[in-house]
Amino acid sequence: MPSIDVAGEFETIRRLFVPLAHPDYARGLMDDVAVLPSRSGFDLVLTKDAIVEGVHFLPNDPLDTVAQKLLRVNLSDLAAKGAEPFGYLLSCHWSERCGWPERGAFAAGLKADQKAFGVSLLGGDTVVTPGPATFTLTALGWVPKGRAVPRSGARPGDLVFVTGYIGDGWLGLQAAQEKLTLETERLIALVDHYRAPEPCLDFSIPVRDMATASVDVSDGLVADLGHIAAASRVGIVIDLEVTPRSLAGQAWFDTRVDEQAALEKLVTGGDDYEIAFTASPRDEAVLRREADRRHVPLTCIGKVTSGQGVTVRFAGQPVEIAAPGFTHG
Rank of each mutant, 00 (worst) to 15 (best):
G157L: 03
G157D: 06
D158G: 05
F161E: 05
I166Y: 03
G167K: 09
G169Q: 08
G169Y: 03
G172A: 02
Q174I: 01
A176T: 08
A176H: 09
Q177V: 06
Q177K: 15
Q177D: 09
K179L: 13
L180D: 03
L180M: 03
E183M: 09
T184C: 01
E185M: 10
E185V: 13
R186T: 07
I188L: 12
A189R: 12
L190D: 05
H193T: 13
R195C: 04
P199L: 00
C200G: 00
D202I: 13
F203T: 11
V207K: 00
D209L: 13
D209I: 03
T212E: 10
S218G: 14
G226C: 09
A230L: 13
A230W: 05
R233M: 10
R233Q: 15
G235V: 11
I236Q: 02
V237E: 03
I238A: 02
D239Y: 05
D239Q: 13
E241H: 01
V242N: 00
P244W: 12
S246C: 10
S246Q: 10
Q250W: 08
A251S: 15
W252S: 13
F253N: 05
D254W: 06
T255S: 15
R256F: 01
D258G: 01
E259H: 15
Q260M: 15
A262E: 07
A262N: 03
A262R: 05
L263F: 09
L263K: 08
L263Q: 09
T268S: 12
T268L: 02
G270K: 05
Y273S: 01
E274Q: 10
A276E: 02
F277S: 01
F277D: 04
T278S: 11
R282T: 14
A285D: 14
V286R: 15
R294Y: 05
H295I: 11
V296M: 13
T299S: 15
T299A: 10
T299Q: 07
T299G: 08
I301L: 00
